[in-house]
C-alpha cells in the first residue's frame, strides 16, 4: 500500500479507483473532523428558545448573537433566566485573562529555566551531571495523577491555593520533557561558535544568552508553543488548586458553566457560545504558528 510517489509505472492507465476511494475517505475524515466545530458555532448562533425546533437544521435557527452577550455578561441575570439560561455569566473576560496570565507565566518560566538546565546538561561538566539527568528522564514516566495529591498538599501548605503562582509553580521551573527536548537540540548545534566565544574570554552566561539562545530560537519557540497549548488546555490541576473566580482559568470556568445547569438541562446555546470563544485564542495561535506545531509533532507525545 505504501508506495512512494514514483511508484511502479504500469503500461495501461486504468481509472485510478483506489486513488478516488482514498481521496473520498480522506475528505470524509476531514469533514468528520471539522463538522463538530461548525455545529458548535451553529448552536452558539441559535436563539436559546429555538433550540428544540429544527434540531437537524444545518444552519442556526433564529440566528442571534444573544448567547455571546449572555456568556460575556452583557445582559442581566433576570433576562438570562427568562431566556432559559442560568442567569449567571461565565465572566469570560476574566477567565480569558487568567488563562493568558497563567500560560505566560508557565511558558516564560519553564522555557527559560529548562533551557538553562538543558544547556548545562548538553555542554558543561559538573558532578553527578549524568545521574541528575537520568533521574529527570525517569520522571518523564510518572503519571500526572500520582503527583496530583502530594503537589496539591504542598501548594496548600504553602498557602498558594487560589493564586496564579500556586497553579504555575509545578510546571514553571522545569518539566522533564522540556529539559529533554531542548537538550537534544543543544547537542545538535555546532559548538565551534561557542568555543570561539569562550576562547575570546566570554563567560558561560554571555555565551548562553548571546550565542546559543539566538541559534536555538526555532526549538525554543516550538517548546513555547507546546507548553502554551498544554497549559491552556490543562483542567484537573487548576480545577483542584484554583477554583476561585479571580484565578479561574477558561477550562475550569467552562466546567463550572456546564455545572450551572438550570434543573439538569444544560444551557447548550450558552455553552457552545462559551466554547467557541474559548477556542479562538488556540485557533489564532494555530494560524500564526501552525507550522511550528506540525514540526513539533514528533516530540509532543510526552505530555
Amino acid at each position: 500500500m505504501t508506495a512512494p510517489t514514483q511508484s511502479v509505472q504500469t503500461q495501461r492507465r486504468p481509472i485510478p479507483w483506489g486513488k478516488i476511494l482514498a481521496w473520498a475517505s480522506l475528505v470524509l475524515i476531514l469533514c468528520i473532523t471539522l463538522f463538530p466545530f461548525w455545529w458548535m458555532l451553529r448552536t452558539a448562533l441559535t436563539y436559546p428558545k429555538a433550540l428544540f425546533q429544527n434540531t437537524a437544521s444545518l444552519l442556526p435557527v433564529q440566528t442571534t448573537l444573544i448567547n455571546f452577550k449572555r456568556v460575556l455578561g452583557l445582559i442581566s441575570a433576570q433576562e438570562g433566566v427568562a431566556l432559559g439560561g442560568t442567569g449567571q455569566a461565565i465572566n469570560f473576560i476574566l477567565a480569558l485573562r487568567n488563562s493568558i496570565i497563567l500560560s505566560m507565566m508557565v511558558v516564560v518560566g519553564q522555557v527559560t529555566f529548562s533551557a538553562m538546565a538543558a544547556y548545562a546538561f548538553a555542554r558543561l561538566r559538573f558532578p553527578f551531571r549524568n545521574q541528575i539527568f537520568a533521574i529527570y528522564i525517569a520522571a518523564l514516566m510518572v503519571p500526572g495523577i500520582v503527583m496530583l495529591i502530594p503537589n496539591f498538599v504542598l501548594v496548600r501548605s504553602l498557602n498558594l491555593t487560589n493564586t496564579f503562582l500556586g497553579v504555575a509553580l509545578p510546571a514553571m521551573l522545569m518539566t522533564p520533557f522540556a529539559v529533554f527536548f531542548l537538550r537534544q537540540f543543544f547537542l545538535g548545534i555546532n559548538r565551534e561558535v561557542e568555543e570561539a566565544a569562550l576562547i575570546d574570554g566570554a563567560d558561560v552566561p554571555v555565551v548562553f544568552f548571546q550565542v546559543v539562545l539566538p541559534m536555538t530560537v526555532p526549538a525554543i519557540s516550538t517548546l513555547a508553543v507546546i507548553t502554551f497549548i498544554n497549559t491552556w488546555n490543562n483542567y484537573l490541576w487548576p480545577l483542584v488548586v484554583a477554583n476561585e473566580e479571580k484565578v479561574r482559568v477558561l477550562t475550569v470556568a467552562l466546567g463550572v458553566f456546564r455545572s450551572q445547569t438550570p434543573q439538569g438541562a444544560p444551557d447548550w446555546t450558552g455553552l457552545m457560545a462559551g466554547t467557541t470563544l474559548a477556542i479562538i485564542p488556540t485557533f489564532l495561535l494555530f494560524i500564526l504558528m501552525g507550522r511550528k506545531i506540525l514540526d513539533s509533532i514528533q516530540f509532543t507525545g510526552f505530555k
Binding site: 485573562r97 493568558i100 505566560m104 503562582l165 519557540s221 484565578v247 500564526l288
Partner: peptide, 30 residues
C-alpha cells in the same frame, strides 16, 4: 512571528488586566 505572538499575548493580558482592575503581573499576584 513568534515574537509577535508573544508580544501580542502579553499586551493582551496587560490590557485585560487593566480592564479587570485586579492583579496584572505575575509578580503582583504572588
Amino acid at each position: 512571528r513568534f515574537l509577535l505572538v508573544i508580544s501580542v499575548l502579553t499586551l493582551f493580558s496587560l490590557l485585560l488586566g487593566a480592564c479587570g482592575g485586579g492583579a496584572v503581573t505575575p509578580a503582583a499576584t504572588q
